[in-house]
Design a protein around this nucleic acid. Sequence first.
DNA 1: ATGAAAGCGCTAACAA
DNA 2: TTGTTAGCGCTTTCAT
Lengths: 345, 345
Amino acid sequence: MNKRATLKDIAKATGVHVSTVSRALDPNRATPISDDVVKKVQDAARELGYRPNRAAYSLRTNRTMTIGVMIPDITNTLFPPIVRGIESVMEPKGYASIMVNTDSQRGREVALLGTLQERGVDGIIHTAALRNEPSIVEAAASGLPIVTLNRKIEGTEIPYVINDEQAGIAAVFAHLTSFGHRQIAHIAGPADLSTGKLRREGFLAAARAHGLDPSGLAISEALRFDEEEGERCAHEILDAAPGTTAILGANDRLALGALRALGKRGLTCPGDVSLTGFNDMPLLDLIPPGLTTVRIQQFEAGQTAARHLLSLIRGDVGAVPQRTILPVELIRRASVAAPRRAARG
Amino acid sequence: MNKRATLKDIAKATGVHVSTVSRALDPNRATPISDDVVKKVQDAARELGYRPNRAAYSLRTNRTMTIGVMIPDITNTLFPPIVRGIESVMEPKGYASIMVNTDSQRGREVALLGTLQERGVDGIIHTAALRNEPSIVEAAASGLPIVTLNRKIEGTEIPYVINDEQAGIAAVFAHLTSFGHRQIAHIAGPADLSTGKLRREGFLAAARAHGLDPSGLAISEALRFDEEEGERCAHEILDAAPGTTAILGANDRLALGALRALGKRGLTCPGDVSLTGFNDMPLLDLIPPGLTTVRIQQFEAGQTAARHLLSLIRGDVGAVPQRTILPVELIRRASVAAPRRAARG
DNA sequence: ATGAAAGCGCTAACAA
DNA sequence: TTGTTAGCGCTTTCAT
């Protein structure tokens, strides 16, 4: 383990002072250096396999060239493309990211935010932050650049990037009504997650827009965004409102769970009940009958959030819109059909 | 942005020397400190919201408490559970991880290894390293603790953790022959990836073990582990060896591609051709007809690799077996059935 | 049991 | 254009 070359080593090798070496190696050099010294230094650096010591740089400049990426769970297919999107803009700028999984637990969210701060990250991209979690607000108030993804934090100036949840829900809802559905139920996501809340609101708004009384529509709220909860909620809905002809799921996994519930009840999709999801997860198209859903831009969302964070880090606050809403796309598949007996009116 | 409290601040607040503060806060304190000083210091630390400056710590100790995790692509469902497994053991020990995606490109693999070294990571878990990529060997030789996952690097002492590829392939192969299949073809993975190579070898070995002449079996090699290549290879196989009754895919995605090829040819699975995969990706069970496959331990593999890396970092080389092979499990689904005309003998 | 002092590698005034 | 100097916050050796 021959330890790494330092500026001092290069200085010794070239006969110039370490500060000169530092300057010669600085890509955006402020002070002018004679060409031959620059060349000599760079040659020596290459020769010695010099790599700057990040810790020393950080200690001195208070910049780690590292950002924190907080996500609920990388195992959720929603997040890997986001992470890649972030990486695609940060890596070329010399930033590395430390990713942490919060499992949507308040305790973990606070603790992990703490470790990121301790490590002196230059900024944080916070994906799907819990609603009503103040620690992130405090961190932002203390001057740490933060951008949230999939989540607006009320009452703050923290810039956020979200998909157009409302438009997505409106699109599926309109799609369902265009087939004649009126008895449309909703499996809502957890209320403490912003997507859960927004999509539920979108559902209610869409119902009103189509002249339906929201209070007459069945809504069951899932505790988690998973198949098990989707199944439970679907049963709840079908027990409470047997006339339901369509179920609008707050995401794909809930819809897949509902599909299972239909199967267990001997009901078919879309024959007996139409079904829709949200997100368009990978492989979804291969699962019969083919779930109609809403495709969101994950990679692009990551990129956008990263670009905004870079601006914040640079201090160019003016360049960052407080909110960015990314367009979504309705994906029509076979899980929606006309209701058996269209209950019009 | 009121800047963070330092040891000096605590020293000032408590009236003791900064070195005393450092010692009082050290969890595994070497030198004895009087109880009341310890208490006073810890109280002040809490009061001031003290968080150690990692950069200063790193500069001084040459330890970053950070590891690098190199993976081909987090978007591939294989890797998120591995990452969580790694995190589950590293995080409690105070380590953070920097994850980088190599996209299985030699250039990226070398460059990203470089940035990890520059950042002074204490160790690296390298998942699915490219075969014949020497940079990682050099890094290990220079003293950097490294553990590889899904990959053995020949001719080195680098510890590796792999799934029992051979046993997995042997199990599916035996499963196929137990249904009477003899004309078994293989869609092999890329030869420059260890899983591709190992599974191909496993296929050949299994064939011999069952008294089949490997040279009589059709093998088509995919350029990538994706559906498109699976489809291409399946067509190639069915064109070249029309008598094929079963296709053993090197992974699930290749098998799904093959499934698509069958569909396009008007063939059914398992009616006309049986099909098997490897990995048991999420949602696979919901895709008809239900792919028979091999389940591997991803989370556990990550945990194991992380534990081994910790031992290496601690200098406890003796505690780390050079190779760890994790058991796999055959998952029987409906994609395998008896061939229409069992070609026995 | 505690203090003093050095120094990790780097950058950034300030001088020259 | 280059050198000198100080110091970021921490750990650790050596005194006391």
